[in-house]
């Protein structure tokens, strides 16, 4: 009886240990696969961000151009209104 209990105990510990080993190996494989999967993100992110920034840069340039035109138009309208007001008087 004691032999059976001891054998069962040893078997259960051995199985749980081997499961831990397997989990450990799996984790290691998972990490290595993920690292390989992630390789090249610097290049990909760089290319993607370069296009995004260049597009937005154009948008900012366009915004600045619109703002300049708007201010010129505003000044022009204001001076015309001022002249018109003078003429009406």
């Amino acid at each position: 009886m004691r032999k059976i209990v001891t054998a069962a105990l040893v078997c259960s510990i051995v199985f749980s240990s081997s499961q831990l080993f397997a989990d450990n190996d799996l984790d290691q494989y998972k990490e290595e696969t993920e690292a390989l999967w992630r390789t090249g993100t610097g290049s990909q992110d760089g290319a993607y961000s370069a296009i995004v920034v260049s597009m937005l840069g154009w948008g900012l340039g366009l915004g600045a151009a619109i703002a300049i035109i708007a201010s010129v138009l505003h000044q022009s309208t204001a001076s015309t209104a001022h002249t018109t007001a003078h003429t009406c008087h």
């Binding site: 610097g42 290049s43 920034v53 900012l60």
Partner: peptide, 20 residues
């Protein structure tokens, strides 16, 4: 970080630094 130059063209030049 990324830098860009404001231009009138439809695609501004840009430069960035990525690290992995």
């Amino acid at each position: 970080i990324a830098f860009f130059k404001k231009t009138s063209s439809s695609f501004s030049p840009s430069i960035n630094l990525a690290v992995e």
